[in-house]
Design a protein around this nucleic acid. Sequence first.
DNA 1: ACGTAATTTGGAAGCGCTTCCACAAATTAG
DNA 2: CTAATTTGTGGAAGCGCTTCCAAATTACGT
Lengths: 350, 350
Amino acid sequence: MDKKPTIDDVARAAGVARATVSRVLNSSPNTSERVRQRVLQAVKDLGYQVNLQARQLASGSSRVVALIFAAAADAEPNSYYHSAVELGAMRACSELGYGLIAHTLDPAQDVYRSRVLAMVDERRCDGLVLTPPFSDDAGLIRALTQREAPFVLISAGPDARRLAHSVGIDDRQAGFELGEHLVRGGHRCFGFISGPQDHRSAALRLDGFLEALRHAGIDEGCVTVAKGNFTFKSGIDCAEKLLASAARPTALACANDDMAAGALFSAHRIGLNVPSDLSITGFDDTPVSQIVWPPLTTIHQPLRVIGSKAIELLVGQIMRENGASDMADHQHLVPFELIQRSSTSQGAPN
Amino acid sequence: MDKKPTIDDVARAAGVARATVSRVLNSSPNTSERVRQRVLQAVKDLGYQVNLQARQLASGSSRVVALIFAAAADAEPNSYYHSAVELGAMRACSELGYGLIAHTLDPAQDVYRSRVLAMVDERRCDGLVLTPPFSDDAGLIRALTQREAPFVLISAGPDARRLAHSVGIDDRQAGFELGEHLVRGGHRCFGFISGPQDHRSAALRLDGFLEALRHAGIDEGCVTVAKGNFTFKSGIDCAEKLLASAARPTALACANDDMAAGALFSAHRIGLNVPSDLSITGFDDTPVSQIVWPPLTTIHQPLRVIGSKAIELLVGQIMRENGASDMADHQHLVPFELIQRSSTSQGAPN
DNA sequence: ACGTAATTTGGAAGCGCTTCCACAAATTAG
DNA sequence: CTAATTTGTGGAAGCGCTTCCAAATTACGT
């Protein structure tokens, strides 16, 4: 097995200096067309490929960014959400000539911070995109800011959004519209399955939801909240609890689709008909919302767009390379949409 | 902002040579305890972190492996499958001190081969794990073998398994057991929703299934096959077609859970009761099989184990560093299990 | 035609690390 | 107590690339 050709081999073959080859390869502006062609030809002839390690070492940048997801060690990760964001991110990356490395960490294990920081300290990547609940971790954000590492937050809560560049939807407004929708359906007694506390943007969904009810003149006492953790399983458990109460709600709003699927499962088990006995709403519009029966009314988040937008912001930040100062308009809000399917009744319930 | 400390800073602080620091850091055998401690102390004091790029360039290995998944540009990726495999792989990696980079590619776009090869050519990783349908791509396998790149196949078909190290279940036997189960349930008229052609291991599932029917003395004419592509959507379409036929099957076996969920969806829409009117089986035992109602009878594949096993094999291969010769016992078969849930009837159908 | 400015090219110095080789020190054997 | 080993350590040569700087070439104005 013969060794791989290096830049020097190319230089020799093209009869130019190593520096010239480097310039051509990095499309530096100052190269004559004649030399340029010669070099390109030599590259092709030899089947030359840059050695990324060497390039990175010499240039001091890896041209790789990382996308950080949460996944509890035992629980199933919210895969559809992840995949969609990752897909968007990947596209943006390949367009911008960056590599993407997706990393999932368990937010319950305290090492996660050092793991994240190690990624930038060891120069595995030039920048980071954080998804919830990491995007609400003030300590992490501070550490990142301190070492001047470029990063972008996805679906962060209001506090975190103040501290760094971010992209996401208006969760509060989305929650509001869900509330409105259910009120319009004639419901007066509600259950809400929320996310864990550290997930700030999910909390906003509840805020907005409650506001919609208030707006409609419905008493706060008419809504019971159960705290889930975004898993299907927790949706089952919460729904079971909520549906067992004396004043059984006729509508269940859930902070994500997986929990809504769980609620639906509970309803089936109890023998309730959806939507005639019980309306259920999800959040995110992941494929789960269409896989279940009946398909879920939910809020569509443009997850891929969010992923690609985050990368664009991040790369912009990396290129600018000055960091700090320009926190100007870098709080991107993307549009969401209420998707009406058959898990919610149109008219009034019993 | 002060620059990061280098190995030379550590050496100076500890009063030893750079080479010694390197030895300590790489736990080379020849270092005295006294010096060792001094170096470690200096590392801690300075907050030193190795620069991976430099280490990789100097050592010629990146200590990173890649996991390649398929995802059509438009269709939703089979996320649960991916996540589970990735999780297992990730664990094995962190145990073995390797980094993992998961990459998804569209098998429909021809560039995918060069993308994969570039990963090893550019030395982004020391080795690869391929999932279907890439694990059945003879051309890719050949190219990889030719450049002596270490790689491991997941759920590859028999042809590919002959060519390289692999890990997976006995798909044929799993299909057989599914068939048996349905026959035991009293069914005599079947539908089978298969995967795309290039997915060899999924084809084995059908082979095994048919064999079970033959075994039970059931005529081949009693089973109709529809070709899906592993997506929920294709499950709906195929089921619709199969259920519309004159001799409507009383049992539908599907090559993965997502398509089974689609079949279930169709059944609901048509107004068939599962399992009393129609039994449905999935494959993989991803969370989808429990999210739907009724939950699916399916084959449990130990996806995480498969992921971690693949990494172990791969790293073993990388360390051995001789490649080729020892294709001995490197065809790992992991156990699967038939999981019985309520989507299949126990007794005889109508 | 000539001087000066703008552009293209080559030379060489690293980037931060691993690892080979040689040498000194500490052991063991004879 | 010297000779033959076995350690432990330092020096130095790269790994393959980018990039600064200076030299060479070309373009342009007068």
